[in-house]
Write a protein that binds this DNA or RNA. Sequence first.
DNA 1: TTGTAAGCGTTATCAA
DNA 2: TTGATAACGCTTACAA
Lengths: 321, 321
Amino acid sequence: MIGIKDVAKKAGVSPSTVSNVINGRTNVGEKTKERVQRVMQDLHYEPNIIGKTLKTGSSRTIMFSFSDFERKFYLSIIRGISEYVKLKDYDLIICTNKSTDKFMNRAFTNGCILLDRRTPDSFLIKKANKNYPIVVMDRIMEVPNIKSVVVNNYASERALVQGLVDLKYKNFAFLGGFESEDNRERFRAFSDVLKENNIPFKKDHYYDGDYTGKSGYQMARLIMLSEHRPDVLVCANDEMAMGAIRAFRENGIKVPEDIAVCGFDDTETAKMMGITTVDVPNYERGYLAAQCLVEMIEGSKNFDPFLINSNVKWRSTTLIP
Amino acid sequence: MIGIKDVAKKAGVSPSTVSNVINGRTNVGEKTKERVQRVMQDLHYEPNIIGKTLKTGSSRTIMFSFSDFERKFYLSIIRGISEYVKLKDYDLIICTNKSTDKFMNRAFTNGCILLDRRTPDSFLIKKANKNYPIVVMDRIMEVPNIKSVVVNNYASERALVQGLVDLKYKNFAFLGGFESEDNRERFRAFSDVLKENNIPFKKDHYYDGDYTGKSGYQMARLIMLSEHRPDVLVCANDEMAMGAIRAFRENGIKVPEDIAVCGFDDTETAKMMGITTVDVPNYERGYLAAQCLVEMIEGSKNFDPFLINSNVKWRSTTLIP
DNA sequence: TTGTAAGCGTTATCAA
DNA sequence: TTGATAACGCTTACAA
């Protein structure tokens, strides 16, 4: 492994001079500089970042950890984070939960953004401190040095469901995703709005999916067997809505005439298929999460949760207000 | 910043003893061990990985770099890499091309997997050596310490197009993605098969998309204006096929009766919509890429390109053999 | 069972 | 303009 010393020896200078050349300092004579550069080339020298980081004590790097590979919107979030970080000249390490602990290390990264419901609050509380701030995107925590950047699921889902009520839908069903804060919030908004409008909701009209299109398809088949078929199916995300619509149509049930269906997320598919949904600004979510993290790294003491709003997109799988 | 020395001093032992405790060595007395552990807790000590890595010289970490956030299959690839890596007890850093150079450092990572057509061959050739092997997933390179793990686009697309020929389609159009090895290969297979079957192909039946659903939609509108409407549209990926199908159907053109459409990738959408396509095993691509990389890290000298086969999925947007 | 000391590759300080 | 030296936090012979 070629190091600064090897270069120094071969170029007949001291290690510090080589270091100065590498870092573009001005205190090096022109001829020396050229000689050192040539030797670096000859020897295929590459600086060892670990040595540098150890010495300087700063990596100017943040980390994003996630562990769900099933939904495309993660890529939009990454794009958002990535662009903000580039702007601020930080580097970004993305990792999956297996390595979260290892890279969540003050020596390695200056802070991290988490989107992984399997990481317990207690772990985050233990890790966070003023030298290692954390942003969480999947829950609300009000703890020093941890900031939540989350979508205001509740408000958006309320707007959607109230819209459906105004459209005179009466018999509602809900297709939930797996157990998570997102799902709870969406369902809470759904049932709150129905209650406020005195619309009864029977428990057996709650169907359990897991956010996949397949589960939407399967649940829709169940719904078709139910005695009082709902006239609107509110799904916790677009993939399930998509699966449900496919099942209905395959069985001659018209959407939205026989049953209206709506989703959440405004995925590419929802746009394509004209599914009524809630537009979640994922790119912005990532961008804002990165911004909040960098601000904390640079000293901000604002740890209040940041709620991101989203809008209902009325399309052709429901009536339109 | 609390280090091993601080712990040692407070516990009244030497740094090496603390190190031994941290690393679970057996040469530490029970009482000393407990005392040290208590002090580590009290002081909120966390090992500095950079120091450790510098000393041991090995990070047991590989890197994956990509820079396209538009297509979901990247997540499947990441999942594949991630699972193999977990199996072998390596860690995985994912990064985007802004930071590729920084993390592509022998001190930081032991090798890397690249899927980013914007990285030039020359850069890879400069970086790769026996201590830093590289896997590329988007091109074929036959160079020591660089191994290509790529989908056999050519063979699969040939199978698809030959199938269409056998189904008696006569008037072919091709909807390409942006300029890339993938796109070139798919088109080459397409035109080779037509040539072999003496089916003429007019240049103006090549349409330029960019792999997005939107571009498929737009190009389909163009196709509808053309004098001799093709009876089959072969798209370089599913998203474009999906967009095209939507445009056709919105305009009363039936798929596959009036025009057949097929894609490439076998995305979730293609499954849902019943689009004829080529199934690219992305999870496996990732898994195999990681496997090849780890093998090289551990000394393998097999740098021959690894071609991954894929299969045609006949569905309802074309006739079925 | 515990401690001493050298060294991983780099940078920073200060002296030459 | 250059060089000697110490230091970053850790591990690891080897000595005690």
